[in-house]
């Protein structure tokens, strides 16, 4: 069901469990300001396991800030943030490490490490931060590079890759440690439409085949609707994308931000049917 105000979400945000499930992410009246500029104001939302939320909004609406708050890269001024049932907004940097180990983040422009090869970038967390045997790490790196279609690119440096390849490497890096939650910050911005579709397809595959909960921040409506209206399924050894059936439409939800708060939350069909003037102008 679509909501047109933040207050409608507050009751669910107060409950630790929603529909008998522990939410993957729960924001409860979160507020953040940079000096005099209020970026988020009393923001509340819940992400359930296996679901995907697409955050839309104008530049500076606070979309990317939400992802950084989930990771603990920024601190909220007020409110509570829960990730996998654990309150994270007051944790120290050291205590945040186990929380971060279950989250994969795809940064805008990829944020690949310039001095490392594609393979070292993808396996960074496994090579550096875990004690897994090298052979096991190598196998996992091969798997995820294969998943994003870049198995042969392992020896290249990030500077040798195209924009689309860099994003796919960033997805592979986020995916390598089998996170329960994936965060995408403008994953298709700056890419041509065809390359953007390959990135969209990866996001859909991860949601439907790996059942990874995800949050996508974007202002690319075309990509957002593609993700919301497609599903991935395996046929034999092939992965096929097809239109999502109506009964599964709520797996992906749109959240529209404006002035630091939520002005809409609902499915793709509900967003298309909205009569709100601001939303209509955003969609047009």
């Amino acid at each position: 069901m679509a909501h047109t105000s933040a207050s409608a979400l507050d009751s669910s945000a107060r409950s630790p469990n929603v529909d008998g499930q522990v939410p993957v992410v729960r924001f409860d009246r979160v507020t953040l300001a940079f000096d005099d500029k209020v970026v988020l104001k009393d923001l509340s939302f819940t992400l359930l396991p296996g679901r995907l939320k697409v955050f839309l909004g104008a530049s500076g609406a606070g979309k990317s800030t939400i992802l950084r708050l989930i990771l603990g890269l920024l601190r909220a001024d007020a409110g509570q943030i829960w990730v996998h049932g654990q309150r994270v907004d007051q944790l120290s940097e050291a205590d945040l490490m186990p929380v971060r180990s279950e989250i994969g983040m795809v940064f805008q422009e990829g944020a690949l490490f310039d001095s490392l090869t594609v393979r070292e970038n993808v396996g960074y967390r496994l090579f550096e931060e875990t004690r897994q045997p090298i052979a096991e790490v190598d196998r996992r790196v091969d798997d995820v590079l294969g998943f994003v279609g870049l198995r042969d690119m392992g020896a290249r440096m990030p500077a040798e890759l195209s924009g689309g390849q860099r994003r796919r490497v960033a997805i592979a890096r986020a995916l390598a440690s089998r996170p329960k939650l994936l965060l995408y910050d403008e994953p298709t911005t700056g890419l041509d439409p065809i390359t953007a579709l390959t990135v969209d397809a990866e996001i859909v595959k991860l949601r439907d085949l790996e059942h990874t909960s995800s949050i996508v921040v974007t202002h690319q409506l075309r990509d957002a609707f593609y993700i919301a209206t497609h599903r991935a399924a395996t046929t034999g050894s092939r992965v096929e994308l097809s239109p999502v059936p109506p009964e599964d439409a709520d797996i992906t939800e749109f959240v529209m931000l404006k002035s630091g708060g939520i002005v809409f939350e609902g499915t793709a069909a509900e967003l298309r049917a909205t009569t709100d003037a601001y939303l209509r102008s955003f969609l047009s």
Partner: peptide, 9 residues
């Protein structure tokens, strides 16, 4: 890249 480093633990 520094944010990515922190995000990667």
């Amino acid at each position: 890249q520094i944010a990515a480093l922190r995000a990667l633990g």
